[in-house]
Each structure stands twice: as structure tokens, then as C-alpha cells.
Design a protein around this nucleic acid. Structure first.
Lengths: 197, 197
DNA sequence: CTTCAAAGTGAATCGGAATTCTAGAACAGT
DNA sequence: ACTGTTCTAGAATTCCGATTCACTTTGAAG
């Protein structure tokens, strides 16, 4: 057999975790040196896995988005169909409370903006990161209204993601107060009602 | 008399307008060179008025916040008391539609984060930029609920500013669709109702 | 028409962070 | 023990943009 390589000391996920900690402290301004400090290794080790700072940060964002969505898919699969949408909305403040650093990492980019100037090696992932979520949104829209035209799908997105996210955003990095959940629930219910009748 | 100075070629506002254009294109990553390009002058002229890039961007943010709030005060002064709060909420998407670049500049900082690391010369302005708005919020809260305790004031802030802003944020830099206004109105009304009974 | 305080100008400098590069280390199979 | 492959190491380099500063320009007052 051919010789075998030295085993890795750091996994990709460990590097991303270090970047996550760095972003929690310094936001988008985090430096590669800072990430290396969190990792407990030299900068070279980071570049061995991620070809640039941009790729590192975009990868972190992708992982955070996927983790956030995973909770949502689980919720939508298990919950009762009737209250599924409001539960999805409430997932946002709950997730941010449980995983504040991950939530902060979500703010690093927005898909549309990231697509404009995306490292080539990540273009595919970035382009499709929302596909499953959109499919889920359409399914829930159909369940709720009986159809999933542009307007109703849009309303569901506003009620379950945009509004809840907007309500927690000012608190990212601190504790998310309980009143936010109240507001999320009221807001989601009301926005969904716009599509009735 | 003593000799008199050469008249200014650029006003502070002109420099800020150039920065506004730069931020509209490049966001927080805008460079001083880019601003100089927008201004049609050399970088030195910018430093003649603003002692650093940080001061320039913070000043732009302050001006944008003040302009935004000015519309709000006008609205609150003229409108009927009954619907004043929902009108304030609707001011957000309307303002963003009418002044997209200004709206983008609002996203440069958040007061709490800016205070952490603020150029000394702007500390005062930054610290007090929200004072009038808070006073207005409290006044409207009292009108709506008969009292302005922590919880009710918080709800009014969520309904009239946080939620509306969260709903338009994904659209900043593009056209804000009409459905957003619908959602803002529904959301604001529902969040305010949380404080009743 | 001279003077001078305040403005403008932009090439040169500085600093900090991203990135590269060469060397050394670890491991499994031979 | 030796070898080939991949990984870690971190000093050296490159890059890029903020900032500086010595010089020029302006225009009303005197």
C-alpha cells in the first residue's frame, strides 16, 4: 500500500468553531490571527483548510444557516399542522436565546449580498442554501391557505422568518427578553391573517 | 481687520453626501478613497473636515438617524392621536422607499454598539441621539395605555420601530414591496394589542 | 497689490492584517 | 528504520487602505 498521511490535529469544524468564537467577540471585523488564537494554533493551519478569510467566514455562515434551518425542519416535521407556522416563528427567538453565537454568525451575510461577491468554491452552496427552506415554506403555505401563490408565500416568509428575526436582531449578543416572544407570536398571527378572506 | 480665509469648496454635508453614496454602493466596507471619488476631490479634503474614517461614518449615521427621526416627529405632531402609533410604524417602510440610501446608512451602526467604541468628539451626540425619540415613545405610550411602564413602552418600541424595521431590512438597497406595508400594519396593531387588558 | 488665515491637494508614509512559503513533524504501511 | 503523504508551524512577505504633511490656492481685508 501507499504511505498514509499525518492525521489532522484540527477538524474543519474546530476551525469554524474558533471562527464562531471570534465572530461572537468581534463581528465581521474578526481577523484570521484572532481566529488562530481561539483555535490555539497558527494561522497557517487555518489557511491549510480554508483558502482565504472570505471562504472561512462564508463557510461559517453556511454552517450556521444550516444548523438554524435543521431545527426548523425538525419542528415542522413533528408539530401539529394547525400551529406549525406560529411555532416556526417562535423558533427564531428560542434559537437565538439557546445559541447566541450561532445567531450572531447568521448576521455575517445575507444570501443575496453574498452571492454578488462569493468565493467561487462556495457559489453552489450559497446559491442553494435556501432551497429546502423555500420548499418547506411553500408546503406550509399550501396547508394554511390551500394555495401557494406569490403573495401568500411571501406573507408566510414575513410572518415566520423576517418579522421574528427583525424582532430579535437588536438583542443579538445579549439576552433576548421574554416580551419578544410575545411580540413574535402576535406579529406572526396577524401577518398570516392578512392572507385570509 | 485681519485677513479672511479662503471660502470652503466643500461643505460638511457635501462630504457626507459623498459618503452616503459610497455606503449605498459598498456598505460599511466603503473606503475613504471611494468617498473622495464620489466627492470629486482628493482624500485630503475629507480629512480636512473629518478627523478619521470612523468619525466620517459615525457622523453620516448620526445625520441619517436625525433625518429619519425628523419625519417621525412631524408625523406624530400632526396625525390624529388614535392612529398615531400605526402611522409611526408605517413611516418606516415609507421612509425606506423614499430614501433608500439614507435607510442603508442607518444600518451602519447601532447606538449601543457604537457607544462602545466611539470617537470622543461624537460621544455626546451618539449618547443622546435617541433621547427625543424615547420621550416621544413614552408620550405616545401614555396616550395609548394610560401609563408608560417598562413593559408598555417596550411594546410600543417593538411595534413602531423594531418590527417595521425588521420587515423592511431584507429589502434595503432594493425596492420595498407593498406587501411589507400590509405586514407592518398588521404586526404593529397586533403587538400593541399585547398590552391591552 | 500684498498679506494671511483657512482650505484644498495628493504623493508619500504607516500600520495592520491577509496571505505565502519553507521547514519540520506525525503517522501507517513497507 | 525508512518513505511518502499530509498536516502543523510561524516567520517573512505582500497588500491595501487609512492617515499624514509639506506645499499650493484662494479671496477678502487692508
Amino acid at each position: 500500500m501507499t504511505p498514509v498521511a499525518r492525521p489532522a490535529k484540527f477538524t474543519d469544524d474546530q476551525v469554524l468553531d474558533a471562527a464562531l468564537a471570534g465572530v461572537a467577540r468581534s463581528g465581521h471585523a474578526v481577523t484570521v490571527t484572532e481566529v488562530a488564537g481561539e483555535l490555539g494554533g497558527p494561522v497557517g493551519s487555518i489557511y491549510h483548510r480554508f483558502s482565504s478569510r472570505d471562504v472561512l467566514l462564508a463557510s461559517l455562515w453556511l454552517r450556521s444557516v444550516q444548523r438554524f434551518q435543521a431545527g426548523l425542519f425538525e419542528l415542522a416535521a413533528s408539530g401539529p399542522a394547525g400551529t406549525a407556522l406560529v411555532e416556526c416563528a417562535l423558533h427564531v427567538p428560542r434559537y437565538c436565546r439557546a445559541h447566541p453565537d450561532e445567531a450572531r454568525a447568521l448576521t455575517l451575510f445575507r444570501q443575496t449580498r453574498l452571492l454578488d461577491d462569493c468565493p467561487a468554491e462556495l457559489e453552489d452552496q450559497v446559491a442553494h442554501v435556501n432551497d429546502d427552506l423555500l420548499a418547506l415554506t411553500r408546503r406550509l403555505t399550501r396547508e394554511r391557505y390551500g394555495r401557494a401563490d406569490r403573495r401568500h408565500t411571501e406573507l408566510v416568509g414575513l410572518a415566520t422568518r423576517v418579522a421574528p428575526y427583525g424582532l430579535v436582531r437588536p438583542h443579538l449578543g445579549r439576552a433576548v427578553p421574554k416580551v419578544v416572544d410575545e411580540a413574535v407570536e402576535a406579529s406572526a398571527t396577524a401577518i398570516l391573517a392578512c392572507g385570509d378572506g
